[in-house]
Amino acid sequence: MPDVTARAETGHHAVTAERPGPKAGPGQGRHAGRARRRAGFGTAGPGELVLRYSLLVLVLVLLISPFLWQLSTSLKSLHEDIFTGAPSFLPEQPTLDNYVRVAETIPVWSYALNSLIVAVIVVLGNAAGATLAGYALARLRFRGAKLLLVGFLATLVLPGEVTIISQYITVRGFGLADTLLGVALPGAIGMLNVLLMRTAFQAIPQEMDEAAVIDGATPWQRLIHIGLPNVRGMLSVITIFAFIGAWDDFLWPLIVLNDPENFTLTVGLQYLNGTFTNNPRLPAAGTMISFIPIVILFASLQRFFFRGVEEGAIKG
């Protein structure tokens, strides 16, 4: 699963990883139009519709029911037997008790806050760092630009796990071992995101820039008034994935953090799992605390993501 914090959990990041291609050129918008036209082809008859919806619902059940099962487990009271062969899918007497008790077992809310802090640093760092660098690489000419670009591209063939030990030593050298800043810092500017922003800026017609240059606009003014309004799609995709990547990341915080006080949610949950094999209700509640915010976030921003897909932000 390739990932954007470039922290290589890369699962989702890789989604956008698809296109470090340096020459994307303008006109990616074409795909959108094509996709729209496709919709009309061979309008589905009733038979086909029934078949399609049945298959869709079948896949939906396969992909979503484990989450619902976990949600249901987290809401079941201690009196309800969850170990029978045919347990009820719905809790008999739904209760939030497990959420209270999981917080008494591990400081799950402060873990959630830790994850949030890391994710916010990563999002802000990428939104600023990748945008500025992407713009300079796409639109300004300067000595060393080629070399830098090669450097950014070279990182793409390097799985993050390969350098993770040395990265830890670097972070430890800064005195940031076992700190949230140490967790957030390496992914705060993802190399892949720099390349993605560069691609987005390149798609802006050159003439717009040239006109602004003639009008005497400085590079900063061109970035703010011409650049930014035209790369909102890509910017939203990389920030969404920066957030999700940081929130979901496990290996890197597991290596950096030692003190249970500082754990992020994923690390804390794994710890919880080892402790409560007899009562799965508590880990279930813990996983929901991690899962629900990210699903709400993704569901509310999904149109930006899928628009990005159609515009070719993600490409095979």
């Binding site: 699962g11 989702h12 989604v15 992909l63 989450f67 979901d248 949950l269 991690s290 899962f291 699903v295």
Partner: peptide
């Protein structure tokens, strides 16, 4: 399932 953490 993609946006959920592998840990979850």
């Amino acid at each position: 399932p993609v946006v959920a953490s592998a840990v979850v």
